[in-house]
Design a protein around this nucleic acid. Structure first.
Lengths: 158, 158
DNA sequence: TATATTGTAGATAAAAAGGTCTATAATTAA
DNA sequence: TTAATTATAGACCTTTTTATCTACAATATA
């Protein structure tokens, strides 16, 4: 299947939740519930995002995680690279190992151009765009403090 | 990683070998050696290609496999679909399940167009093109009867 | 300081993809 | 008809990816 890995997909949803969080930090538990990602798995994803400087964290009571920068300054590209490495787009669309710029595999020229298109698109799309989309659709919405009051929602911190 | 599956990659090389085979049928064993695909695994791939009408086969002494049609009439698209299913390009680049034409995920519009580009490219490229590329590069070349005479090559059937 | 709460780390497990092995059925040719 | 050869079928194993579990370290607050 031609798409981003399942792990990266989790990460994008989780980060969008963080971006929409009204009063950071948010706990991994709350974000996991909001983004529909297994909590323990999100904890591992969090480490990578932390190492790459996309989020920051603090342990202990009232601790949690938050975006290291405004959502407008975090691109999908950066997230993909953080989780799958710099070559997440792959060299050869056909999985061949002989492909390089001086050896034209049948899809090479096409893929070189197209890969660049995808890269640029991923660089253009920011976390804020993803958040806006989710908000429009009422998806993966991180509840505000007011909304939480007595709501009984699973991610009610208080 | 954004590319075709490893299995599909194997299949494309194997089919290119078949396309270049001077005197079909060729045994799975010979094709496996030529295409650098594990023999037993190729046997499984062969079944799918057979079911999809891309190759035909005959068992027994002097049996083997061969292309069901000329290499010019077999596209990469067809091969991908045979092995990974009709939706091998995926619906959402971000792996989201809420994506559909009336709900625009941040990459949706982009991906709809781009996916179509890839699809068209895969439809345009035929097995004959892949063979031509391999021939140019001296890769995955199915030896002719003459070349085999006394060559001691592993895929020498005689 | 004691305790509850939170992220961190590492072992473990389940699922999926890739790959191997063995037995069998079909076919040819001696 | 027998033996050799080939695809076929299905069980099984390995690796990678995804996910869980357990113990632990840090922090805030009562």
């Amino acid at each position: 299947m031609i798409s981003v890995s399942h792990t990266t997909s989790h990460a994008i949803r989780a980060l969008a939740c963080l971006a929409g969080c009204a009063d950071p930090p948010a706990s991994i538990k709350d974000v996991a519930a909001c983004a529909d990602v297994p909590q323990a798995y999100l904890a591992k994803i969090v480490k990578k995002l932390n190492d790459s400087g996309i989020i920051e964290s603090k342990r202990g009571h009232k601790g949690g995680i938050w975006l290291a920068r405004p959502a407008k300054l975090i691109s999908l590209l950066e997230i993909c690279i953080a989780l799958e490495g710099d070559d997440f787009l792959g060299t050869c669309l056909l999985g061949s190992e002989c492909c390089s710029d001086d050896r034209d595999c049948p899809t090479h020229q096409f893929w070189m151009k197209n890969r660049e298109l995808i890269r640029r698109e991923f660089d253009r799309i920011k976390l804020s765009d993803v958040l806006a989309f989710y908000r429009e659709r009422g998806l993966h919405h991180m509840p505000t403090v007011e909304e939480l009051a007595g709501s009984g929602l699973p991610f009610a911190s208080e």
